[in-house]
Design a protein around this nucleic acid. Sequence first.
DNA 1: ACTGTCGGGACCGCCCGTTGTT
DNA 2: AACAACGGGCGGTCCCGACAGT
Lengths: 211, 211, 211, 211
Amino acid sequence: MPDTHVHAQRSDQTRTRILDAAAEAFADHGYAATGVDEICRRAGLSKGGFYHHFPSKQALFLALLEQWLALLDRPITSAEATGAAAPQQLRAMVRGARPIFTQPGEQTAMFLEIWIQAIRDPAVRAAALAPYRQYLDRFAALIAAGAAEGSLRPVDTPAAARYARVLMALATGLLLQDLLDPGGADWGQVAEDGFGLLLKGLAAEPAGGAE
Amino acid sequence: MPDTHVHAQRSDQTRTRILDAAAEAFADHGYAATGVDEICRRAGLSKGGFYHHFPSKQALFLALLEQWLALLDRPITSAEATGAAAPQQLRAMVRGARPIFTQPGEQTAMFLEIWIQAIRDPAVRAAALAPYRQYLDRFAALIAAGAAEGSLRPVDTPAAARYARVLMALATGLLLQDLLDPGGADWGQVAEDGFGLLLKGLAAEPAGGAE
Amino acid sequence: MPDTHVHAQRSDQTRTRILDAAAEAFADHGYAATGVDEICRRAGLSKGGFYHHFPSKQALFLALLEQWLALLDRPITSAEATGAAAPQQLRAMVRGARPIFTQPGEQTAMFLEIWIQAIRDPAVRAAALAPYRQYLDRFAALIAAGAAEGSLRPVDTPAAARYARVLMALATGLLLQDLLDPGGADWGQVAEDGFGLLLKGLAAEPAGGAE
Amino acid sequence: MPDTHVHAQRSDQTRTRILDAAAEAFADHGYAATGVDEICRRAGLSKGGFYHHFPSKQALFLALLEQWLALLDRPITSAEATGAAAPQQLRAMVRGARPIFTQPGEQTAMFLEIWIQAIRDPAVRAAALAPYRQYLDRFAALIAAGAAEGSLRPVDTPAAARYARVLMALATGLLLQDLLDPGGADWGQVAEDGFGLLLKGLAAEPAGGAE
DNA sequence: ACTGTCGGGACCGCCCGTTGTT
DNA sequence: AACAACGGGCGGTCCCGACAGT
C-alpha cells in the first residue's frame, strides 16, 4: 500500500521542480522570453516530461499564479482573524506580506509577471482579477469597519473602496520601484513611511477641533 | 539642397510612422510578443525599410522610451517653473501628467512596457534609471523646499527622498491597477483621494500644538 | 485454469477495444495524422497498456488490415461456394460486399487508408499485395470459367486477368468518389449501372452472329 | 527597367523549385509524413525562405493542387474542342490524359495525395470538389450529346450523370491499382480494355435486332 | 529611401516508444 | 494487464536580421 504512493510522490516532486524552475526563469527573463526548453533544463527533465505534467506553458503559469496567491493569502487572512482594530489589522497585513517581497526578489518578480500577463492574456486576467477584487473588497470592508468602530475617520462606502485602491496602489508601486532600482532606497523604510502617511491620513481626528 | 529637405522630411515622416506603429503594437501585445513584421505591417513599409531607420528592435524601443520621457517631462518642468509653493507644484504635476495616462491606454501601456523592459534589459535600464532617479530627486527637493518654506511639515533630507518615492509609488500603482481593471473604479477620483491623503499627511501641522 | 480464461478474455476485449478505436481514429484523420495517444484515449487505456498489446503503431495497423481482409473475404468466398454461373457469382459478390462500404463510412475510409499505407509502407504492402493479387486471380478464374461455360464471351487468360482488374478498378474508383463526395450521387445506383455495363460487355453474344 | 524583374524572376524560380520538391516529397511519403524541412532540403533553401513564399504547408499543397488541375485540364478541354462525336471525344480524353499518369509516377501519386487530402481537409476539399464536379458534368453532357446525336445509346439525364461517374471510377480505380502494383499488369492495356468495355456498353445498338 | 528574398535559429507542442511500479 | 512518468526528437511556424537590388 505504501507503494501506491511512489508514482504520485515522484510526480509531485517533479511538478514542484518544474514550478520552481519556471518561477525562477520567469523572474529572470519574463514569461514571454522564457522558453519551455529552459524551464526543462532548469528542472532537469525533458520536454516530454514537462508536457506530461502541464498541457501548455500557459497552464503552468496559471498554476504558478495559484500558488502565488495562496502564499499571499496567508498573512492577510491571519491578520483578519485577529479581529483587532482596523489600523492594527492593516499594519499586520503590511508586516505579514513584507517577507514575500523581501526575498531575493523572485516572488516580487513573479508578482509583476502575473500582473503583466493578466493585462494581456484573458485567461490569466480571469484568474487574477477575481482575487484582486476580493482583496480590494476586504480592504474596503476593513476601512469601513474602522470608520464604524471609530478607529478610522468616517468614510462612506465608495470612499472606502477608493482608499482600498490607494493602499493597493502604494503597495504595488513600491514593488515596481524595488524591482527597477533595488539599491536605490531602503524600500522597507519607504514602505513604513508611506503606509504611515496613508494611515495617518485615514486615522480618526483626535477629537473636536484642531489638535 | 531643397532636395535634401524633401528627403529628410520624408525620412522623418517614415520614422515617426514606425514609432507610432510600434507604440501601438507594444501596447497591444508587449515588447517581446510583438514581431518586427507586425510593426512594419502597421507602419506600411517593408522590413528592409525598418532596418534602414533602426539598427534593431531594441534601438527602436530606446527611441520610443526617449520620446515618452520627453512627453512626461513637459508638465513636470512647467510646474516647477511656476515657482509656486510645494503643495501647489505637486498638485500641478499630478494634474499635468494625468492626460498622458488618461488616454485610451496606449501611453499607459507604453509606460508599463518601458518599466518592464528596464527591469530586464540592461540597455533599457540604463536609459530609464537616470531620468527615474532625476525625477525622484526633483520631487525630494521640492518636498525639502516645502519643508523649508513652511508649506510642508519639517522633514530631513533622507525622509524627503523617501516621501518622493512614496509619491512615485502611488502614481505607478494607480497606473498598474488602471491597466488591470480599467472599469473597476473611477481612477481619476481614486488618484485625487490618494494624493489628497498623502499631501494632507505631508502638510504642515495647522498651527499651535506640537506633534 | 478458469482464471486463465478470465485473463485471456479480458485481454482480448481490450485488444478489440484498441482495434475499434484505432479504426475510428484512422478513418477520421488518417494513419499518419493519428497519434497513439489519441487511440489510447478513445480506447480508454494508457499507452503502457497499448504497448502491451501491440509492439508498435504499425503492428496495430497490420492487425487492422488482417481484420478488414477477413471481413471482405466472407461475401466473396460464399459467392464462390454457390457454384453458380459466372455472371451470377460476380453479381453476388458485388451485392455481398456492398454493406461493407455502405456503412457510415468507417470501413470505407479504412479501406482507403490500407491502400495508401500499402503504397508507401513495404510491410503493409507485403501484407496487402498478396490478398489483392489473390482476389484478382479468383476474379480472373471466374471470368475464364464463365467463358468456358459459355455464360461469358470467350476471352483468353491474359484478357481475363485484365478484365478482373477492370472490375476491381470500378469498385475501388466508386469507393474513392463516395468518400470524396458522399452526397454527390446515389452511389448504389451508380455501382449498379457500372457493373451492369461491364457485365453486359462481358456477356456472351446473344447467339447467331459471329463477332 | 529590365532590372525590375530580377527580384520577381528569382522569386518565381524559387517558388517553382519548392513546388517541384514538394511534389516529389509528397509522392514519396505522402503529405502528412512529409516535413517542411525535407521539402526545404530538396528545394535547397531554408525554412525561413520557404515561409516567405508560402504562408503554410497547406497553402503550398493548395498551390500544387491548382497546378495539377491545370495539367489535367488541357487534354480534356482540347478533346472537347475537336467537336468530334462523343465516343471519339471520350477516347481522345483517355488518350490525352494517359501521359499524366504514365510518367515515373510522381503525378499519379500526387493525384492520390490530392484525393486523400480532399477527403480530410475541408480547405482542400473545397478546392478539389468544384473541379471534380465540373468534370463529371462535362462528361455527362458529352454522354447526353452522344445519345442525342445517335453515337451513343439513348440515356436520360440522370443516367448520363451516373455513367459519367462510372467512367471516372474506372479511371481512378486504375490509378489506384497502378500505384499499388505497378508491375502487376500492363495498365495501359487494362485501361484500353476497360474503357473499351464501357464504351461498347454505351454504344448505340447497331440497328434493329440482334447483330 | 526602400523593396523583396532569404538564412539560421528558436518557439511551443506533439510524436512514438521505454521504463519502472503495481 | 495495465499505469504513470518520462526521453529524445521532430512537427509546423515565426522570429530578427542581412543583403542584394532598384
